[in-house]
């Protein structure tokens, strides 16, 4: 286990040295993934669905703030929806404007979470997002998670049901069919309820003072997801395949445990309990030390022996750090 912590300290050191490049690299890769996934799922406009367009957009967004990826992804989504119908594109644009007006305007940085949710759905690990947001964030992340869920279900419905939408009568008919199918999708509401309860439970449990609260929070978050989805499916007669759900939950738990390793790793065996008071309060404090492992720095010493003919002296060559 100490090797894992050493690796963590090593990664922290590397990040500290090259954070500028790593951040920009991550931004580029993330942007490229978002645009490629959009093109793959709803690439109805051939010109905009080319990989070169996704690459150019990703490169441009690398040099802009992170929220530029969300703006570009929103615009791309509207453009792709125009390939289905102008009415659908207007509805999608209206939904994105409503999200901006009521939420993103106040918290533009959470646009990253909105983009992560559809990506997680496509990678079959959607349950990781509410668990991780509950660990590192707050219940305020419920809103961007629900927004991301809505965006995914809109994309998913259009990708699967484009013939139904196009076959509807007129623009208003297409829009009505689209809105009804998306907003009356019971599966979406069940998943939304599961994510909401998951993030609330994970946040509440990880804030508690008992040992291994974070691990308990992660596992309970995954369990509540499964329970709510199963109960919702039975109650509202929705079909969900359970094997991908359970497998996705297990992978989500593993991911969350890895995140926990970097964000919050403490040694409960060395907890200290303190009690003191001042004029106003009595303090009962539990101090849990963080796990910190010094990383050993390897130095290579080269010793070259050079025999002097007359005196017989030996020369020692200095190593890379300048030490003998």
């Amino acid at each position: 286990m100490s090797k894992v912590f050493e690796f963590r300290e090593y990664l922290k050191r590397v990040y500290g040295l090259y954070s500028k490049y790593i951040d920009k690299g991550f931004q580029f890769v993330f942007g490229l993934a978002v645009f490629m996934i959009l093109n793959n799922e709803i690439g109805f406009v051939e010109l905009a669905a080319r990989p070169l367009v996704a690459l150019v957009l990703a490169v441009v967004c690398t040099f802009l703030p992170m929220s530029a990826i969300a703006v570009a992804a929103g615009l791309m989504m509207v453009v792709q929806m125009m390939g289905v119908s102008i009415g659908i594109a207007m509805v999608v644009a209206a939904i994105l404007v409503v999200m901006t007006a009521f939420y993103l305007r106040f918290s533009p940085k959470t646009s990253l979470v909105i983009l992560l949710v559809p990506i997680a759905f496509i990678l079959k690990i959607p349950y990781a997002v509410p668990i991780i947001c509950g660990l590192v964030g707050s219940p305020a992340y419920i809103v961007p998670i629900l927004c991301g869920t809505l965006i995914y279900y809109m994309m998913n419905y259009i990708a699967a049901g484009i013939t139904v939408v196009k076959g509807a009568d007129g623009m208003l008919g297409q829009v009505t069919v689209f809105m009804e199918k998306v907003f009356q999708d019971r599966g979406m509401w069940i998943v939304a309820a599961a994510f909401t309860l998951c993030i609330l439970l994970v946040y509440t449990v990880r804030k508690q003072a008992f040992d291994h609260a974070w691990e308990t929070a992660i596992v309970s978050g995954a369990i509540i997801n499964i329970i709510v989805i199963v109960v919702g499916d039975i109650a509202f007669d929705v079909t969900t395949s359970y094997f991908p759900m359970v497998a996705g939950s297990i992978v989500s738990v593993l991911l969350a445990l890895i995140i926990q390793l970097f964000v919050f790793s403490v040694d409960y065996s060395r907890s200290e309990y303190l009690q003191f008071e001042d004029d106003e309060y009595c303090y009962y404090v539990k101090a849990v030390p963080k796990i910190s492992v010094p990383v050993s720095r390897k130095t290579v010493k080269k010793i070259n022996v050079r025999q002097d003919d007359e005196t017989g002296e030996v020369e020692i060559v200095r190593d890379e750090t300048g030490e003998k």
Binding site: V91, A94, I95, V97, V98, T100, A101, F102, L172, V175, T176, M179
Partner: peptide
């Protein structure tokens, strides 16, 4: 945002 939301709900 409210007008757009109202239109969406109305549709």
């Amino acid at each position: 945002g409210y007008i757009l939301l109202g239109l969406l709900v109305g549709i």
